[in-house]
Amino acid sequence: MADTLQFSLVSPERELYSGNVDQVDIPGTEGNLGVMPNHSPLMAAIRTGVITVTENGAETQFFVQGGFADVTPSGLTVLAEKAVAMDALNEADIEAEIAVLEANLPKLTGDAALAAAQNLDGLKAVLSA
């Protein structure tokens, strides 16, 4: 039985992280979830937020926007629509995106509005952190 988790974080452009880790905390649409080795198979949608990877006690953080987490017996793959390392995150970009989202929000209805609002909440939470 493995006591580490094979974790990879991929965005459409590239693979951001790949390695054996102790724990990964994911912002799921239904709530945050921590994935540790030998987790049961799970497929979860992700909301805008921060992924925390714990490897040998050291934490690495990534900002993700939308996507999926796929937990299999062999490991965890996060397919993020957008993913950036926390250090490389540009506050001005996020502020600009928040402004655009806020301007568009009143025009949206149904699922799209919900998704946008969720996205907005996530962005604001990241910015204030």
Binding site: M43, A44, A45
Partner: peptide, 12 residues
């Protein structure tokens, strides 16, 4: 291949 038949939890 491994997963065919495995019980997957979906969220949502």
């Amino acid at each position: 291949q491994d997963l065919k038949g495995a019980i997957y939890t979906y969220e949502p």
